[in-house]
Amino acid sequence: MSTTRSFRPPGASSTPRAARRTSRLRRALRSWQLYVLLLPAIIHVILFKYWPMYGAQIAFRNYNPADGFAGSPWAGLEHFARFIGSFQFERVVMNTLTLNSLGLLIAFPVPIILALIVNQLQSERFKKFTQTVLYSPSFISVVVIVGMIHLLFSPRAGLVNNVIELFGGDPIFFMGMPEWFRPLYIGSDIWQNAGFSMIIYLAALTAISPALHEAARVDGANKLQRIWHIDIPGIMPVVTILFILAIGNLFNLGFEKVLLMQTDLNLQTSEVIQTYVYSVGLQQAQFSYSAAIGLFNSLINLVLLLTFNWIARKAGQSSLW
């Protein structure tokens, strides 16, 4: 840096600042090949991420294809007002909130508990076997998971109803009952994903110094006490960050699965903001109106993320930034 600054070729700009700028530019040019490597990814984010962000302005316009994103006439907040005033608003927002916060409260602790238990296992082989089995469902596609739910919980010849009948109960039409939608959704989510999240916590647990456990053992602490006083505080930073991220995704998570699990009969609980956007926007082609609903959704997400991140930072826990 210092050499390039003192070296001033004839004809170059006379101020040191301009010279510094040209030397930086020259350095950047010399590594032009790096920019070539970067180019496809940049084109990708511009086309498929930033252009849609720019296009999100149709939420404030009356979009028509001929005029494009920026040419369509302004509508102001009309679409937002229509959504908030619509009879669907309360149901859709409440369903989203209930499904996701219940899901978070119930499903979030499961992988942590599993990881704490698996971490205490003495037999390496049993440990490995457990891990493999528990996370194997995370490779199954959403479509197949929902297909499995349909089959296993079918009122006719479904495994679950066979068990119920074995104990003398009456078969239940699970997929047709609004009150069963949430338990099925959350339960199958735990079934599929708890194992994979467990691995992240296990990784965090292995980072805890074994010396701490040794010392605690010498002092006569039993396993439960060691989990409580060493393991849980040890993984708390990871837990906090994953929790904040989960909160930030509160309104996004599992939308594909909700869509697949929807039946005409359980819409009362299964219609969430994003499936509503899908059906209004893409099936009924009300682009601007549904874009406004989508934007409303993203806004709540961002606010939740920022709020919880702020709370975590205030509480002295680790935060995203």
């Binding site: 252009w51 149709i58 899908y278 893409l282 993203s298």
Partner: peptide, 13 residues
Amino acid sequence: MFIDGGLIARYLV
């Protein structure tokens, strides 16, 4: 990762 244009805009693009 934190901001996206939403389903509809993506479809239109």
